[in-house]
């Protein structure tokens, strides 16, 4: 039981927290702008690498480098939107996907160009895990879970308590009705990009901290983020956060040796869990757990 908590449940929660951050932004973008943002993963990688650059060159801690990650992802998202997505928005919805697919490639090319293909790790001291009653957990994992929870709480406050947050939810419900209510949609779209970019920057730093940084790290979490967002009901940020945690747990627990000491799923196939969850959701409950847009 203790082994399950230490080697499956806690890592699952950490991974789930990271997925939740990424998927929430994806779901917000989908809700407000109604397109699947395929560059989201590479935006995550960009954030992680910029935090890495800040952390190594300035000698600051990884946590202190998070603002640098956001300082890279926010302008990247806003520029991509202004140059590429905005002109396509009114006319051709499906083409936005292709455009974001192209932006993904451009971001990845930039990361390769500046940081090279070799994986790197955040400078971090090697510390023994904390032990509570046999439950062993790395301090950084506690911070990742708490950090993600804090982000979720802040997002909740923004969405439920502020005028801008209400406008975002209103646009998600019905963009035309929001416009005739006087909502300046361009401003709401910018705000959505900023929030999603901050969330994904944090997710990138956390993922880099949990494992390592590599240029394809973002592409690797893209499928999981989409699966989480769709599982939670696309366009519903809360559902996406919940879906992210579920997916993280499912991925880690999928290798649990439940029967005869053999893992349920070979660890090398872990990343297939997202696909299975995606297909199962599309098959059984395409609107997601929390009734997203279909």
């Amino acid at each position: 039981m203790l082994a399950f908590v230490n080697f499956y449940l806690l890592p699952g929660l950490v991974l789930g927290a990271i997925y939740a951050l990424s998927a929430t932004g994806l779901s917000l973008i989908y809700g407000v702008m109604r397109f699947a943002h395929f560059a989201h993963g590479d935006l995550l990688a960009l954030g992680a690498y910029c935090a890495f650059a800040a952390s190594t060159s300035l000698g600051i801690s990884v946590w202190a480098s998070i603002p640098f990650a956001a300082a890279a992802t926010i302008p990247a998202a806003l520029v991509a939107d202004a140059l590429f997505y905005a002109p396509l928005r009114r006319s051709l919805p499906a083409v936005l996907l292709i455009s974001s697919f192209g932006v993904a490639l451009m971001l990845r090319a930039l990361i390769y160009f500046f940081f090279g293909p070799t994986p790197v790790t955040f400078p971090r001291p090697i510390v023994p895990p904390l032990v509570f009653e046999g439950v062993r957990i790395q301090a950084r994992h506690i911070w990742i879970i708490l950090g993600a929870a804090l982000c979720a709480f802040m997002l909740h406050l923004i969405l439920s308590r502020t005028r801008a947050g209400r406008a975002m939810r209103a646009m998600s419900d019905d963009p035309d009705l929001a416009r005739i209510s006087g909502v300046a949609t361009a401003a709401v779209i910018r705000l959505t990009w900023i929030i999603a970019a901050v969330l994904v920057a944090v997710a990138g730093v956390f993922l880099g901290l949990d494992t390592q940084l590599q240029p394809v790290m973002g592409f690797n979490v893209l499928l999981a983020s989409f699966a989480a967002a769709i599982l939670g009901g696309i366009g519903r940020p809360w559902g996406a956060a919940f879906g992210g945690v579920i997916l993280g747990l499912a991925e880690e627990c999928s290798t649990y040796p439940l029967v005869d000491g053999a893992p349920l799923l070979q660890p090398t196939y872990k990343s297939a869990v997202a696909f299975v969850v995606l297909i199962a959701t599309l098959l059984l409950r395409p609107q997601g757990l929390f009734r997203g847009m279909i």
């Binding site: 699947a36 395929f38 893209l222 499928l223 989409f226 699966a227 990343s271 297909i279 395409p286």
Partner: peptide, 23 residues
């Protein structure tokens, strides 16, 4: 499965197929 639903779901599912084939 995916074609019954919105167009973007197929796009997402096809990324998954490529990943499974690679694995």
């Amino acid at each position: 499965i995916a074609l019954r639903l919105r167009a973007d779901y197929l796009a997402i599912a096809t990324i998954g197929i490529a990943e499974i084939v690679r694995l």
